[in-house]
């Protein structure tokens, strides 16, 4: 990559940040060039972000319909999946899935709720509600 080929297309997922890339200058020396990012990076990052959003939206719709608990919505909203939430809370995956059932979620002990709230970085009150 030459210095003038370093992408400066403005990847909006980078915010105001620029990332360092190595490229060759006119004399052939490899130097660090700050890059505003490329459309390629933006495409794949947004793809992942949107995938998470889609899961969260779907869970929200089902939660309002009484088919799942707010826990599932918040899990996706915090960019986690069941496997990760299981690692973070130390609970079995099947238990977490069970807690997606609204009737069971509404009867969860404060201790379990606190464990979820801690893992998701929010308070218990917020965890019980939907946005």
């Amino acid at each position: 990559m030459e210095v003038n080929e370093v992408p400066q297309e403005g990847n909006r997922t980078l915010g105001h940040h620029r990332k360092a890339l190595y490229a060759r200058d006119d004399s052939g020396r490899v130097i660090i060039v700050p890059s505003r990012g490329s459309e390629v990076d933006e495409t794949v990052t947004l793809q992942a972000v949107e995938r998470m959003h889609a899961f969260a939206d779907d869970a929200k719709r089902r939660a309002y319909a009484g088919e799942t608990s707010p826990l599932e919505y918040w899990m996706w909203a915090k960019r986690m999946d069941v496997a990760l939430l299981s690692q973070v809370t130390g609970l079995w995956q099947w238990r977490i899935r069970r807690h997606f059932r609204p009737a069971i979620f509404s009867r969860l002990s404060p201790r379990l709720l606190a464990r979820y709230a801690e893992a998701l970085g929010m308070n218990i009150e917020a965890l019980r509600r939907l946005p």
Binding site: M1, L21, Y22, A23, V40, V44, T45, Q47, A48
Partner: peptide
């Protein structure tokens, strides 16, 4: 395939970036 590229370009510099870095 998007994931492959994300691991390559976005997460900690990635594939092409590391090749340029090793080139340096």
């Amino acid at each position: 395939v998007g994931h492959i590229v994300r691991m390559q370009e976005e997460i900690g510099t990635g594939g092409a970036g590391f090749r340029f870095l090793y080139g340096a």
